[in-house]
Design a binder for these strands. Structure first.
Length: 425
RNA sequence: GGGGAGAUGACCGAGCGGCUGAAGGUGCUCGUCUUGAAAACGAGUAGGCGCCCGAAAGCGCCUCGUGGGUUCGAAUCCCACUCUCCCCGCCA
């Protein structure tokens, strides 16, 4: 949510900013917010004037009653005023609701240094690490490797759940556990994170706080008969941890790491990445979430990217870091960098992590504030998060990049240590 | 699932339908005292919004779990809901 005052002050600047994201409906939402705001304020001023009169006359009646001197005619006047106030209250409430609804549909502004672009073609590769492995025979895709070594079973997953579900088997299951185990240990011991293991079901209020509602409800799974959603990412429960709280000065920065399954409907992705672990309705992910002072969020985005890179480097997986252009920023995001891992079956880099700065957009929606000093006015925090990493895609990358001509998999040292074997065959 | 109790500020905790946005305490901030600290003493200390584009000052409105209702007037009375705690039953 943007600040209303900022919208009043510079509507044209805001319009340009959100237009650069190409978010459908954004400019209409902004227009609606601006016009509702004007009507709302006019009505509110009138309502407050009437309430002030009611309060002051009511107080004199109170004094009269206690002095044994009631004035019955004032009561009938006030009864009428009270009725008029009720009518106007209803109108103000309605306008306020419409204003709020419109505001919730206005996306976050891009940070000033984000390159303006019209599509993902305008994203910028910032750096690359590692060399894509060379194969003398064509490398196998991970779904074939998984089937041949008995690690993955997509056919039976289809039977018991449907398309875009997976079954991990034997060493495959062990790997799916070993990866987050390794990642969590790194983030906790080296990156200063405190682990959170949140509920996997959250209410609508939480989805609203992170910006997944009201616009993107169709991307998530909702439980029938309950106000509960399957978390699309740990970002939702963890960002909402401090909703409606004022954090004390010493609390920031807060660094959390959470390992959860994630559920996504993948509506609109029909036909894309239909094979393998790349695009699933359920997948595991290790997520970093930071709460920081506004002036620190740029530095913390870089830190989160680095934390995610540390995982890839420890696993020896070649990757590139990509700065997203304005068109590729999500609804709530002010800036975003993706990490893309080399995927031999795709013959290109594939997204494995997405690190974003939400500035005060989520904090304003979720009402997450802090004080700089014990008696200072509360300010909104900045929230950031990044995957470090998506576990399924990481498993796919480990299998594909680690394969040899005999169809064996050479495991990176951190995983070999946990599994107690260096080679899968 | 059945029965009972409760929800007030950063925290604890008072609160006859009308000078109660809220006593008292704790914590915190500043000051006095002290070589320094502690103690003692003094002062301060909720949030949101409008008038007004921002800041300051001022004026006003709202907020005692949430939403309705009664009333000239509700933290206080009534209804519904949510959440917390206790007892019984069931259960991983």
């Amino acid at each position: 949510m943007l600040e209303l005052r900022q919208i009043r002050q510079d509507p044209e600047g805001i319009r340009r900013g959100i237009a650069s994201k190409g978010e459908p409906g954004a400019e209409e939402a902004l227009q609606a917010a601006i016009s509702r705001d004007a009507e709302w304020r006019a009505s509110l001023t009138e309502l407050e004037r009437m309430r002030a009169e009611q309060n002051s006359v009511s107080a004199t009646i109170g004094r009269g009653v206690r002095g044994g001197n009631p004035r019955p005619e004032q009561r009938t006047e006030l009864k009428e005023l009270s009725q008029r106030i009720k009518g106007l209250e209803e109108r103000v409430r309605g306008l306020e609701a419409e204003l709020h609804e419109a505001l919730l549909r206005v996306p976050n502004l891009p940070s000033s240094h984000v390159p303006v672009g019209r599509s993902e073609a305008d994203n910028v590769v910032v750096r690359r690490w590692g060399e894509p492995p060379q194969f003398r025979v064509p490398p196998k895709p991970h779904w074939d490797i998984g089937r041949d070594l008995g690690l993955l079973d997509f056919e039976r997953a289809g039977k018991i759940s449907g398309a875009r579900f997976s079954i991990f088997r034997g060493a495959g299951a062990a790997l799916e556990r070993a990866l987050p185990t390794f990642m969590l240990k790194l983030h906790i011991e080296r990156h200063g994170c405190v682990e959170i293991l949140p509920p996997f079901l959250v209410n609508s209020e939480s989805m609203l706080g992170t910006g997944n509602l009201p616009k993107f409800g169709e991307d998530a799974f909702q439980l029938r008969g309950h106000d509960l959603w399957l978390v699309p990412t740990a970002e939702v429960p963890v960002t909402n941890l401090y909703r409606d709280e004022i954090l004390p000065p010493e609390a920031l920065p807060i660094r959390h790491v959470a390992f959860t399954p994630c559920w996504r409907s993948e509506a609109g992705a029909a036909g894309r990445d239909t094979r393998g672990l790349i695009r699933q309705h359920q997948f595991d992910k290790v997520e970093l979430v930071h709460f920081v002072k506004p002036e620190d969020s740029t530095a913390h985005l870089a830190e989160i990217v680095q934390d995610a890179e540390d995982v890839l480097q420890a696993l020896g997986l070649p990757y590139q870091v990509v700065q997203m252009c304005t068109a590729d920023l999500g609804f709530s995001q002010a800036n975003k960098l993706d990490l893309e891992v080399w995927m031999p079956s795709y013959g290109r880099y594939v997204e494995i992590s997405s690190c974003s700065n939400y500035t005060d957009f989520q904090a304003r929606r979720a009402n997450i504030r802090f004080r700089r000093s014990p008696n200072a006015q509360p300010e909104f925090v900045h929230t950031l998060n990044g995957s470090a990493l998506a576990v399924g895609r990481c498993l796919a990358a480990v299998l594909e990049n680690g394969q040899d001509e005999q169809g064996r998999i050479h495991l990176p040292e951190p995983l070999a240590d946990i599994l107690g074997q260096k080679l899968l065959s």
